[in-house]
Design a binder for these strands. Structure first.
Length: 495
RNA sequence: GCCCCCAUCGUCUAGGGGACCAGGACAUAACCCUUUCAAGGUUAAGACCGGAGUUCGAAUCUCCGUGGGGGCACCA
């Protein structure tokens, strides 16, 4: 049952009801990996059979998110494909036809019960402490009666006719055989009274018609899995491999990510939706790496993966069926890791927009140098402006107590600054090599520690307590700017 | 309430009867490096849910319990 042999046809089939989040992105990633690995196809199908929950913006968000992640479908509503259309609302008649085939074979039936009736029955059942289920009142309606009522215009649905006795065994790729008693299964609705199919029918019909080989979906489908298998079998179709992914839990491992938790995470600046990742300073390489490892592992050593690595190394067998908590600090770690592995040009190109957004004019020559001094220090792209903005600022925000905070008196600081300025003026070129020893000498002359001088200079040049190494900064800033900032400091200290 | 799934450090996991006084990663702490901050290096602390059984031998297999999760819509 190796997944590597035959080209897999896998589909990512989201319902357009909201933004693409980590969980569905993971499903899409695994779909993509399997398709690429086997030389198969990755299909995007939009499951928009519920017009009540439909959100127009969702589909665009899916496309953007998938795009950003680099998970480009081979077949989709936008680009079409051999099994068009890829939007379920456009395949309505197909489902109806198939449902009627099921009626003809005796595996489905028309049901005329109204929602109100059904609700009443359900309430009664709950009151009696029974599992809510369809009571079967239309199950044995004669064909003639059903036809008559339909012709009379009676509102109706189509339900699957689940065997009353016996049991059904289905096979999940990760969990093996699962057997349930048919009596615990419900005669679920296949076609709603408005003529639209529900997931249970639409997804199955499409998966078959689109020749899907591996159904990779969330484990919330496990309870209705037998129904889906029953539908396949009623049609006499060969089932695909069924792969039910574990659910994603809250970071503390206690409970599934709910709407409220999502909001909470948003408020804390934690990324839940792919659309927010970029703005929060994450790069797609790390998001992919991070997501891949929630519920999947390769071996006991390797954790760093590029998408190419993943295509080579991914395997369904190593998927973990147990629920997994989301670990956001690991995302930060991966982000730093992937940032450090970017080429300097690539990294520079990615940080450029951040400086520009902050209102700075970015000179490409400088940018490359700046990039090289901040790359190992960057975990999220959001940090680059606060870390290196001083390179671009004309006037940095210097104040007296900022400069002298380090156990230096204003007089000492002024004296030191003046000496440093004199030194720099004297030197034909200022860089780490020409400047370090003389700076240490100045410190010794003033009976200060070298660290104090370096700290002072850091404040004067950057306006920050924390910065990249000053000897890296000085040549990038250039002599003129360095002197200018020293002058400014001396002025402040003198006043 | 009923049905289904899952169960190793705080978190993600390796492990599929002896190679495990359980390995790695994140996070945490300490140290080294060091002009600050990172990065890097070294180290520390930290887990097999409980109980029966099978076996010469169980983290690994079986059963029961417990815990966690999911589902019980004319949503997906």
């Amino acid at each position: 049952m190796s997944s590597k042999q035959n080209p897999a046809r896998v589909r990512f089939a989201p319902s357009p009801t909201g933004f693409l989040h980590i969980g569905s992105a993971r499903t899409a990633l695994y779909d993509y990996l399997l398709a690429r690995q086997t030389g198969g196809s990755f299909i995007l199908r939009i499951e928009d059979t519920d017009q009540k929950r439909y959100q127009e913006s969702a589909e665009e968000d899916f496309t953007n998110a998938l795009n950003w992640l680099g998970l480009l479908p081979d077949e989709s509503p936008a680009q079409g494909g051999p099994h068009s259309p890829y939007r379920q609302s456009l395949r309505k008649d197909l489902y109806r036809d198939h449902a009627e085939r099921l009626i003809n074979s005796g595996d489905a039936f028309y049901c005329f019960c109204s929602s109100e009736q059904l609700n009443l029955v359900r309430e009664e059942q709950i009151k009696r402490n029974e599992t809510p289920h369809y009571d079967g009142s239309c199950r044995n309606l004669s064909r003639e009666e059903a036809t008559e009522r339909i012709q009379a215009g009676d509102s109706h649905v189509i339900r699957i006719k689940v065997p009353k006795s016996g049991n059904t065994t289905v096979t999940d790729f990760l969990r093996g055989e699962i057997t349930v008693e048919n009596s615990t299964l419900d005669d679920m609705i296949l076609i709603k009274s408005n003529g639209f199919a529900v997931y249970h029918l639409a997804a199955i019909v499409d998966d078959y018609l689109m020749a899907i080989t591996h159904v990779i979906r969330g484990s919330e489908w496990l309870p209705t899995f037998p129904i889906h298998a029953l539908i396949y079998r009623a049609f006499g179709w060969k089932e695909p491999y069924w792969v039910h992914l574990s659910v994603l839990l809250k970071p503390d491992g206690k409970g599934k990510m709910s709407k409220r938790d999502t909001q909470l995470a948003q408020d804390q600046g934690l990324p839940i939706f792919i659309k927010d990742m970029e703005e929060l300073g994450y790069i797609p390489e790390s998001v992919i790496n991070w997501i891949a490892l929630i519920g999947w592992s390769y071996d006991d050593k390797t954790e760093y993966f590029t998408i190419e690595d993943l295509i080579k190394k991914f395997s369904l067998e190593k998927l973990n069926p147990s629920p997994a908590a989301i670990n956001f600090s690991k995302l930060d770690h991966f982000n730093g890791l992937h940032i450090r592995n970017l080429s300097i040009e690539d990294f520079a190109a990615r940080i450029k927009p951040w400086f520009e957004k902050a209102g700075f004019t970015v000179d490409n020559n400088n940018l490359l140098q700046i990039a090289s001094v901040i790359q190992t220090r960057t975990k999220k792209l959001t940090e680059v402006v606060s870390m290196a903005g001083f390179f671009f600022q004309k006037n940095i925000d210097l104040t007296l107590d900022r400069i002298i905070s380090d156990k230096l008196t204003a007089t000492q600081a002024a004296e030191a600054a003046q000496k440093i300025k004199d030194l720099f003026l004297e030197l034909p070129e200022i860089n780490g090599e020409t400047v370090e020893q003389p700076l240490r000498d100045i410190a010794a002359g003033l009976e200060l520690k070298a660290g104090q001088i370096f700290g002072l200079l850091r404040e004067i040049l950057t306006g920050q307590k924390i910065s990249p190494p000053i000897f890296d900064i000085i040549p990038i800033l250039g002599k003129d700017l360095v002197i200018q900032r020293l002058d400014l400091a001396i002025e402040i200290l003198g006043s």
